[in-house]
C-alpha cells in the first residue's frame, strides 16, 4: 500500500533523512517510533506530499506521490499532532469544512459528519464552538476531521497527547475499529503501550535512519536484552546474599536487592525462589522487568522515547 524508497532530505546542510526505506502492507498498522528530531515528522510530511524529498520516492497505492499528489492525497487522511481546527466554528462546521476540501458532496458530508460525531461521542455538542471543548474532545474532533472522506490510509501523529483517560479509551476504540475495518494506519507516538497495543509492525527511526523494524516479537528476539527479576530480602545476612548471587550466572547484588538476568524470566523465577529459601533469605518483594518496547528503544537509540 505504501512504499518508501531511499528518502533523503536535508535542511541547511543537516541531513534529516539519510536514505530511509520501508514498506507498509494494505490494512497494516505501522508504528513509527523515534525520539524528537529523529526524522518522523519529515517522513510523514513527505509521505503526505507537503514536503519534497531531495531524492527517493513515495508510492501510495501504486501512485508516485510526486507525480500524482492530488490523487494520492485523496487516499490519505492526516491527523496532525496539534489541534488543527477553527475554534470559532462549531464541530459540525469544522467537519463540513475539512471534509469539503476532499470533494465530499454536501449530502454525503452531512451523513458522514453525523456518523463520526456519533462515533466520537460528540453528537450532542455538535453545534458548540470547538474552542469551548475540553482538550480530549478537541482531540476527538481532530481525528474525526481526517475521516470524513473515508481515506484508505490514515497518518496519525501523536493523536492522544495530553488527554483524559475517557477520551483516550474512546479514541483507542475508534482506532481499533478502523483497523479492523481494514484501514492502513501509520502511527507515531511517545506512548509505548499504545505502540505495543496497536502496531502490527514497528519501525524505529533515529538520526534519519530506520535502525530496527519488525513485529514486537521480532524486535524482542532480535535484541540482546535479557529480562530481569529484582528480589528484595528482609533482614538477610550479607554473606548469604553474596553466596546466592554468586550461584546465578548473571546477577547483581546491591544492598538487600539482587537483580537476576534471564532470557526467560518465567522459567527462572521458580529457581530464584527455591534458591532463596534454601539460603534462608526471606523475600519481601519480587519485581519482574520484562523486555518491552521501551527497553528495546533505549538499547537501540541510547535515548528515552521522550528525549
Amino acid at each position: 500500500m505504501i512504499e518508501i524508497k531511499n528518502l533523503r532530505k536535508s535542511y541547511n546542510g543537516h541531513a534529516a533523512l539519510k536514505g530511509i526505506s520501508f514498506a507498509i502492507q494494505k490494512g497494516e498498522f505501522y508504528g513509527l517510533l523515534g525520539p524528537n528530531g529523529a526524522g518522523k515528522t519529515t517522513t510523514i510530511s513527505i509521505m503526505s506530499s507537503i514536503l519534497k524529498p531531495d531524492s527517493g520516492e513515495v508510492i501510495i497505492d501504486g501512485m508516485n506521490i510526486d507525480t500524482h499528489p492530488g490523487q494520492a492525497k485523496q487516499l490519505i487522511g492526516v491527523v496532525p499532532q496539534e489541534i488543527a481546527l477553527y475554534g470559532d466554528l462549531t464541530a459540525s462546521e469544522n467537519l463540513h469544512f475539512w471534509g469539503g476540501l476532499y470533494g465530499v458532496s454536501s449530502s454525503e458530508l452531512k451523513k458522514r459528519s453525523e456518523e463520526v460525531l456519533h462515533l466520537f461521542g460528540l453528537y450532542d455538542r455538535r453545534n458548540d464552538n470547538v474552542k469551548t471543548y475540553s482538550g480530549g474532545m478537541k482531540r476527538r474532533i481532530n481525528i474525526a476531521a481526517a475521516l470524513l472522506h473515508q481515506p484508505k490510509i490514515l497518518f496519525m501523529d501523536e493523536p492522544t497527547v495530553g488527554i483524559d483517560p475517557q477520551s483516550r479509551n474512546l479514541i483507542f476504540e475508534v482506532i481499533e475499529k478502523l483497523h479492523k475495518e481494514g484501514m492502513t494506519i501509520v502511527y507515531t507516538t511517545h506512548y509505548m503501550e499504545e505502540a505495543e497495543r496497536f502496531c502490527d509492525r514497528i519501525g524505529i527511526i533515529d538520526n534519519g535512519q530506520i535502525i530496527a523494524e519488525g513485529t514486537l516479537k521480532e524486535l524482542k528476539s532480535n535484541s540482546a536484552l535479557k529480562e530481569v527479576v529484582v528480589v528484595t530480602y528482609d533482614h538477610a545476612d550479607e554473606s548469604k546474599l553474596k553466596e546466592l548471587s554468586a550461584q546465578w550466572p548473571d546477577s547483581n547484588l546491591s544492598e538487600n536487592k539482587i537483580s537476576f538476568y534471564a532470557a526467560d524470566v518465567q522459567s527462572a523465577l521458580s529457581g530464584i525462589i527455591s534458591g532463596s529459601g534454601q539460603m534462608g533469605a526471606d523475600i519481601s518483594n519480587i519485581e519482574i522487568q520484562r523486555t518491552n518496547l521501551e527497553t528495546i528503544f533505549l538499547s537501540l537509540t541510547g535515548k528515552q522515547l521522550r528525549d
Binding site: I50, P69, G70, K73, V78, P80, L85, W98, L101, Y102
Partner: peptide, 9 residues
C-alpha cells in the same frame, strides 16, 4: 490549520 490545509488535495 495551514499545515492541515496543505494535506488536502
Amino acid at each position: 490549520t495551514l499545515k492541515r490545509l496543505l494535506y488536502a488535495p
